[in-house]
Design a protein around this nucleic acid. Sequence first.
DNA 1: TATGAATGAGGATTCATTCAT
DNA 2: CATGAATGAATCCTCATTCAT
Lengths: 226, 226, 226, 226
Amino acid sequence: MSGRLCYFQAMRSENSPSGRKRASFIEEARRAQIIESAIDTFAELGYANTSLARVAERAGISKSVISYHFAGKTELTEQIVEQVYSDIAQFVLPRTEKEATSTRALRANIRAVAEYMRGHRTQLLALGEIFNNSRTAEGKRRFGVAYSEPVYEAREALFRSGQQAGEFRREFDPRVMSVAVQSAIDGMFAYWVTYPDHDLEAHADDLADLFEHATRTGHPRGEADR
Amino acid sequence: MSGRLCYFQAMRSENSPSGRKRASFIEEARRAQIIESAIDTFAELGYANTSLARVAERAGISKSVISYHFAGKTELTEQIVEQVYSDIAQFVLPRTEKEATSTRALRANIRAVAEYMRGHRTQLLALGEIFNNSRTAEGKRRFGVAYSEPVYEAREALFRSGQQAGEFRREFDPRVMSVAVQSAIDGMFAYWVTYPDHDLEAHADDLADLFEHATRTGHPRGEADR
Amino acid sequence: MSGRLCYFQAMRSENSPSGRKRASFIEEARRAQIIESAIDTFAELGYANTSLARVAERAGISKSVISYHFAGKTELTEQIVEQVYSDIAQFVLPRTEKEATSTRALRANIRAVAEYMRGHRTQLLALGEIFNNSRTAEGKRRFGVAYSEPVYEAREALFRSGQQAGEFRREFDPRVMSVAVQSAIDGMFAYWVTYPDHDLEAHADDLADLFEHATRTGHPRGEADR
Amino acid sequence: MSGRLCYFQAMRSENSPSGRKRASFIEEARRAQIIESAIDTFAELGYANTSLARVAERAGISKSVISYHFAGKTELTEQIVEQVYSDIAQFVLPRTEKEATSTRALRANIRAVAEYMRGHRTQLLALGEIFNNSRTAEGKRRFGVAYSEPVYEAREALFRSGQQAGEFRREFDPRVMSVAVQSAIDGMFAYWVTYPDHDLEAHADDLADLFEHATRTGHPRGEADR
DNA sequence: TATGAATGAGGATTCATTCAT
DNA sequence: CATGAATGAATCCTCATTCAT
């Protein structure tokens, strides 16, 4: 997930066909098959070892079928990102937004993401590979800042409103806290991937506690020291 | 830094020549030059776009010089990891260990890492690229669990002793907290890389506060709810 | 135009349907549309960069429409040549043949071609691309000698009759002069294509003068020298 | 030769190594071998059918040897152009410049080119293929105007000085005459390529006569008519 | 008539590595 | 110690063509 998971933003485009022309049933099926195959390959072999040839091989189709359905490797990866994004957003957002307080929303959000992870390990692994590695010809990251900002801003808003409501202490920077939450979630995922028997749910709850303690009003002893 | 930053472990090997035969002065100079050039290339272009040809070009030497001094791309990356590791450990560990309480040690640790980051951005970027991408021929991660465990164990020990000393609340899983800290640090680095004007020191202090609140004894209101 | 422009020969086939079976209206419309699109593509992108895909794209139709209406790329290019040829002949021949003397006929011919050029730049560019580049599978030129000879023969006849009539000096080889005229016309076209503001009409008149001087009776001073 | 043969300009760079770093003997030998093989392939199969694979095959070497010695297909073609140019210039220029009068210089020039042709058919065929077809990624001709102008200018100067000296009639546009001469030479080459038994020397002499008549002072009968 | 889908062959290029010098 | 030369495998991509619908 790579610290740049942006399910908030993705919400917007989930229902629009994003500029693509109407596609036939068989077209969509093939595209889905290829995307799935690509996701599996990215997840298993890593970005650098994922070639279109290997994706085709896994899908049991000819290399050029991919070229026929996608303009190139770039479009394929973009489609993967788009799809995974809207998928996450559709799952996480409703579960987050129904909560009344900021504290509860934060906990619900962390839990929802963890729940999603369990069912979409491969998808998220692939997304991470793409985010970390996809670059333009000039060497710049293809999925850069633009993809991170909306998530940070959404969480920032959550923390800010919690601070204004008096739920959260005012000393922390909402942006920093936002980055920390995202990082902790990413870290949880990476840890679970490494140790598949790890209890994801318990981890998520611990994380929720952690950030509840970290954000709630009250002064830690150490704060005066520095 | 990729969530698998293992400066604790590296400590062990920092003084031992790690199995390499004694090398001449010129040999070492060349190796250092190549490693530096490779680090720069990994950091700037990313793992997939870093070829030995590009490393050689940047170093102003012939491709085969690299082949002469390193068994292959694999050995080169291993050497980079080894070097960066011992470098980090040498900086961070003393600053962490001199603290008396667990709370202070945690804060010192976070601060030390942040301080190190500022002076070694490129190094750490390269390390991250390698960790995230270097794979064996079969597709398995080359720098996997073995490299992460020691860090987690070291931090776990820190939290456990803090809990036993009554400094930290007992409800959290030391391993989870350990993973969270590491993730937050990694996230801080990634954020700073994206926004170079970001105040790293302030971020580190916020992080220290965050985990102080998260670990100190005391019950958040929400904890009863779940 | 490529030095092999054969409007004389084409005359013959302009009214015969050249072996094609009677086609429906819609069939002819499609073929015309595709040919036009192909001409534009050849002219703009050059032979090597003109693929059926690009032609189809420009025409706003599917690739396979082309395959349906033409046996292959080869037939398409042949059709283009055939069409452009009969088009040129229809324009140039009447304007040439109505002249009484060889001298006037030559001038009229050059002028007519230049006039045609102005209105059919793209057509002629495409023709040149095809002539210069279309080859059989074995690498032989597809539009070779057979397409050049009739032009040379026609012009040769013009020069020969001029010589017999005493209009032209007898020292030059009619075939060489014929080739030179064709080359000069081709060169005029190429020059105008490069410099679109070039005065085509003035160029044509200069060319007519040039060949009038070159062919009329009388001995240049230098001729004795060699 | 494609109407863009620029041996005048090439003169300038014939002795300078044109920015390439000093190359070893074996390097130069390989490059020469590859260039020769490429020239043969271009000449025989045409531009579109000349792939690096075929060039390598003809040279009896591996494809990647070409990639090793040349940055790409583009550099290879550029090197061919550069070499053929300087070769032509070295042959034609001295033979042209030693003549005292413009009339004689023109004749000498035409003869020299024809003489060169006989010994370098393949070279010139390849050059023509490249000139007519090599394009940039955007579809623009790679060897465009810049390569034609110097030739035209040089010949233009010759005609102009002949006009000022009273050798040539003043009515013709030196630029048009210059283009015509170049076209006639190109046409002669193309004709000879098609009919290898054609008498090149006689053709050249006829051409020299032709342009002597065309340029010398005196008024053709027809000129008043238009 | 028309076309969406598929495909194998071939295109240029990059790569890590080997080897002789 | 250094490197120029070479190479085969693998990269993505484009192509003309075929076929079932």
